[in-house]
Each structure stands twice: as C-alpha cells, then as structure tokens.
Nucleic acid binder design. Structure first.
Lengths: 178, 178
DNA sequence: CGACACATGTAACACGTTACATGATTTG
DNA sequence: CAAATCATGTAACGTGTTACATGTGTCG
C-alpha cells in the first residue's frame, strides 16, 4: 500500500516518468526503505489499471510521463485524511518471535532478548551518526530518520522490560517471593 | 515470514492440526494480530512443499496432524538465533506518509500529525486498559501488549517532535530567528 | 573502447488475505 | 430444529520483490 500511495503523492507534485519516481522516492525517504526500480513500473501499471494514474504521453525525450487522475487525487486525499490504524500495520515479527520463544524447547528467551538488544543498540548508534551528518535542510529525511530512532529506542526499552519480566517470572517459578 | 515461522514455533512444542494452530496462535498473541484460518492451511501446504513440516497422518479423530521436520527445526533455530534486522522490516507507512506530505499541495502536514496523534492516543488508552484487565499469568500476551504500548508511546513522541520541527521550519521560512 | 548512469519493461515468485464451499458435531 | 462451533480446504487476488532482458547516452 505504501508504495502505491507514495507514488501517487510524488505524482501529485508533478507528473513524472518511472525513473524519476525512483530517484525522488529514494531522496525523500533518505534511502531508508529502498525501492527496487522494477517495482516502480509494476506498480505504475497497476495504478493505471485501477484508474489512479494516467499515461499522459511522453515529454519530448521519449519518457513515458504519468500523471494523477481525479480518482488518484481523491485516493491521495483520503490517505492523508485517515490516520494509520494499528490494525492495518503488518504483524510485528519481533513481538511474535519473543512471545512464541517462551514455550519453545531449547531456546533461551533471554539470549534472544540480549542478541536483539545488542543489534538494536548498534542500529541506534548508526542512526544517531547519520542524523549527526545529515543536513538540516532535508526535512523529510530528518523526519524519517527520527522515526527510526524513536522506534529503535522504544524497542530497547521494551526488550529491557521483557528481561525484567522474565527475571520476575523465573523468580516466581523458583518460589522466591516477588 | 512471521506466519510461517510462527507456525513452526507452535509445531515445535507439539504436533497439531490446522484448527488447533489457529486457536493457539490467537491465544499466544492475544488476538493482536488476527490470522485468518484459511491462511493457516495455505501456509501449511507451502511449509510442506518446502519440507519444513510433515503431514504425519491423523490422530484417531481424522484430524490432519502436522509435525516439524529436521529442516523445520533448523529453520526455527536460525530464526531465534538471528536478531530481526531493521532492513527486513516492512516500510513504515506513517513515516513515509508524513515525509511525503511535506510537499503535497493542499495537504496541511500539521493536520495530519494532529489527526494521527489523536488516533494513537486513543489506541494507547485502549491498550493500557487491556493491560490493566489482563491476568498476570499470560506472559506471552503481556509481552505482546507491552510491545504495542511502547510503540504507540514512541509514535506519540515522534509526532510531537515532528510538530516542533514543523514549527521551527515555519518560523524559519517567516524569517524569525531560531 | 569500456564502464557507468539513464531508462523501460516483463516474468516469476513469495507472502498475505479474503471469499467461498463443504461438512461434522454440539447445544440451546 | 436451528444456530454455533469445529474443521478442512481452494481459488483468486493484491502487493512486494527479484532477476533478467534490453537499449541509449555519456565520459574517462
């Protein structure tokens, strides 16, 4: 969904051809969510099939220019008008993984937590470094970066709370007073 | 991916048939990430095709029991041994949406931010209530709930930081000293 | 010339999702 | 009996992803 709507958003600023969409999308999101060039074209044809964009001839250089249709504009407005619901986010692999790890024989949950924590902390350092080196001008990219940072921080906090919970639980199992 | 691995994790505890997998998965994740029953069967056949599970005849009640194969067990161990990388998480729709909203004509980014903030706060209240009513016994479900809570909190914080950034930006554009 | 960026596209596949068909068993 | 729950499956579709084929233009 994000790719479709993302392309619509870019086309709203200005009609463009596929390759341009690719570079622009990469710029805007700081390359955080890489998008295979092939997918641009597949998505464009699907958007055209659904009447959201229009293959509006070429620009004199032989480039296939796409433009928003009215339906596309409506769709885009609806996207911005509707908050992203928790329900339509993809399943959180990490949460599922830890929840299920609890009852799988031969897997030490605390090891899993620790390994993840280390990896996430490394990510966090990397993101902070990127933020430091980022210019203040690219607002879109800064927002995206911040989003990743806030999420990584939350993940570390969550992992810590998991560990605490696991300790309590272990204590409980061993009959120690909580 | 999470569905496939999730089913493997459940089957590691004990061989089961499709319907059982459905209920168990729902229990463990507290119904947070609903899983259509149909998908269980589709996924099971794909897992069988890939040699990760084995249709091990039926229990005396005519239920098609599936069990992990050795390959399946290896796959599962690998899952738990490898931290979830930032790169293989799905694109963050909200981050993309805000980043792109910045340059779409006729969309007030701050309105989008506010609408999302309201929705997320409501989610947060709901989640907190659920946590309050949850028993202390179901560790898996508590972890999953916490994960959602931490994420929602991070989202609110991020939205606030976005607003601040937007204000500064506006001030900057108006020539006011930052 | 060779390498590289620009540019477009398609085929095939993986995964998730829904809608639908089908039937057995239980229970108010 | 009717409704609900248990139980299995399939067809079709949407979206994302990769690999590949193909060609142009540019620059060292």
């Amino acid at each position: 969904m994000s790719v479709k709507l993302g392309l619509l958003a870019l086309l709203d600023e200005q009609p463009m051809y596929g390759y341009q969409l690719h570079t622009t999308f990469k710029e805007r999101t700081g390359g955080t969510w890489p998008l295979n060039i092939g997918q641009i074209y597949t998505t464009l044809s699907r958007l055209e099939r659904d009447g959201l964009v229009d293959a509006a001839g070429d620009d004199g250089d032989g480039h296939q220019i796409y433009a928003l249709t009215d339906a596309g504009r409506v769709e885009l407005q609806r996207w911005f008008a509707t908050p992203v619901a928790r329900a339509d986010r993809p399943r959180d692999e990490l949460a599922i993984k830890l929840s299920l790890a609890l009852s799988v024989a031969g897997v030490d949950v605390r090891e899993v937590v620790q390994a993840q924590r280390t990896a996430t902390l490394r990510d966090l350092q990397d993101l902070t470094r990127q933020k430091f080196h980022a210019g203040e001008d690219d607002l879109a990219w800064l927002l995206a970066l911040d989003s990743l940072i806030f999420q990584a921080e939350a993940e570390v906090r969550w992992l810590d709370s998991c560990e605490e919970r696991l300790l309590n639980n272990q204590a409980f199992k061993n009959g120690v007073r909580r």
